Amino acid sequence: MLDDFAIRAGLAGLGVALAAAPLGCFVVWRRMAYFGDATSHAALLGVALALAVDLPVFAGVLVVALVMALIVSSLSERHVSTDALLGVLAHAALAVGLVAVSLLPGQRVDLQAYLFGEILAVTQTDLITIWGGAVMVALLLIWRWQALLSATLSPDLATASGGNPKREQLILTLALAITVAVAIKVVGALLIAAMLVIPAATARPFARTPEAMAFWAVAVGAVAALGGLAGSFTFDTPTGPSIVTLAAGLFALSAALAPLLRRG
């Protein structure tokens, strides 16, 4: 069955939705969209590192994404002016990554594949990596769900109850780095943040509990992945951007329906 590239692509999209959508709920709740942007833009530098030292791309992206996420988290805790500084970090990391990839000796790198994803070229090995990372993120979030919620809703109350908000922040940082590493093959460095934020934001008006929001976010991400893949086949459009375009359309529909849901 996995010899069919379309089935592999669909399974890869579902794996990314499983990892990104519930994590994206915490990104939305904590207003950390900048955090996802900076981390995902650093992924290209991870690609360059992996190719330079002959490591799997997943490993290089994971290391660099984790380092960038830790830097961003540290700056946030110090209350450094976030918007401008994080904008500099995000775009500087992307630019340095592009330059580093171009300077690699004897390497021919398809930059478009890493920037916008290449889901149709997913191999069985890639699929194992994507689903392994997705399951790891899902289990991590399930294990720490209540603690993460407490730290998100009220860090002071979580601390008073014996929790450790900084530890929960590190867990989110690790989950984000894993998600970036598994998603780069599917939607690319420029679109990973969109798959974190858009499904969660789309699900928000339909959910009455945090758990319901996570469930609906996964459903929206799955519909966007499979629908975008089908649309790409039908209209001969780039697959990664097609997935994000459909996700954006679902968000627009959700935003239009939100006032009706509130009145109901």
Rank of each mutant, 00 (worst) to 15 (best):
S73F: 07
I71V: 15
R8G: 09
L49A: 14
L170Y: 15
M68W: 08
A43L: 03
L140R: 05
R78L: 09
G117L: 03
L11W: 08
F26D: 01
L14H: 11
L170E: 04
T209D: 04
W29Q: 01
L2D: 13
T159C: 06
L172N: 04
S150F: 10
A160D: 04
R208T: 09
V28A: 13
G163D: 11
A217C: 04
S40H: 02
W145G: 08
Y114Q: 10
I198T: 14
L70G: 03
L261S: 08
M1V: 01
A193Q: 10
V137R: 11
G221R: 11
D156M: 05
L89I: 15
A92T: 11
Y34Q: 05
V88Q: 11
L11H: 05
L157Q: 07
F58V: 11
T39G: 06
M195S: 10
S242W: 02
F35E: 01
A43P: 01
V64K: 06
L139W: 14
A59I: 12
V135N: 04
L140M: 15
T245F: 13
L2T: 10
L261N: 07
C25L: 09
G249K: 03
A33M: 06
G249D: 08
V244N: 10
W131T: 07
L85M: 06
A59P: 03
